[in-house]
Simulated scan of single mutants.
Amino acid sequence: MNIKAMKRESVGTGASHKDRRAENIPGVIYGKEEGSISVLLNEKEIREVLKTQGDSAIFDVTMEDGKKLQVYIKEVQRHSLKNQILHVSMQTLKAGQKLTVFVPVVLENTENVKIGVLEQALYEVSVETVADKVPEEYTVDAGSLEIGDTLTVADLEQLPDVEIVEEPDTLIATVSAPRVEEEPEEDAADPEVIGEDKAK
Rank of each mutant, 00 (worst) to 15 (best):
Y72H: 12
K98A: 12
E192K: 14
E186W: 02
Q120Y: 05
A95R: 14
E137H: 12
G143H: 06
V61Q: 07
Q84D: 14
V175T: 08
E43N: 05
V165L: 03
L151P: 12
K74N: 11
E45Y: 07
K4P: 01
V134Y: 01
V134D: 04
A199G: 11
G116P: 01
K133A: 14
S56M: 02
G195A: 10
G12D: 05
N109M: 00
G54P: 08
D169C: 04
V175F: 05
K74Q: 14
S176I: 14
A5V: 14
D132F: 00
V49M: 10
P168D: 08
P160T: 03
L86I: 13
V28C: 13
A5R: 06
H87V: 06
S89M: 01
M90E: 06
G14F: 06
I85T: 13
V39L: 15
D55C: 00
D132R: 13
K94F: 03
Y30A: 09
E157F: 03
V130T: 15
A177W: 03
A57N: 00
S126N: 10
I115H: 14
Q53P: 00
E186F: 11
D132S: 10
Y30S: 03
E146P: 06
M63N: 03
L69A: 06
T129V: 07
I172A: 09
V76L: 04
E111L: 03
M90D: 03
E166P: 00
S89L: 07
E34K: 13
D65F: 04
Q158C: 01
E185G: 11
E45K: 12
L50K: 05
D60F: 09
E108G: 07
G66D: 04
S176F: 04
G14I: 03
D155A: 14
R78D: 08
V61M: 07
Y30K: 09
A57C: 07
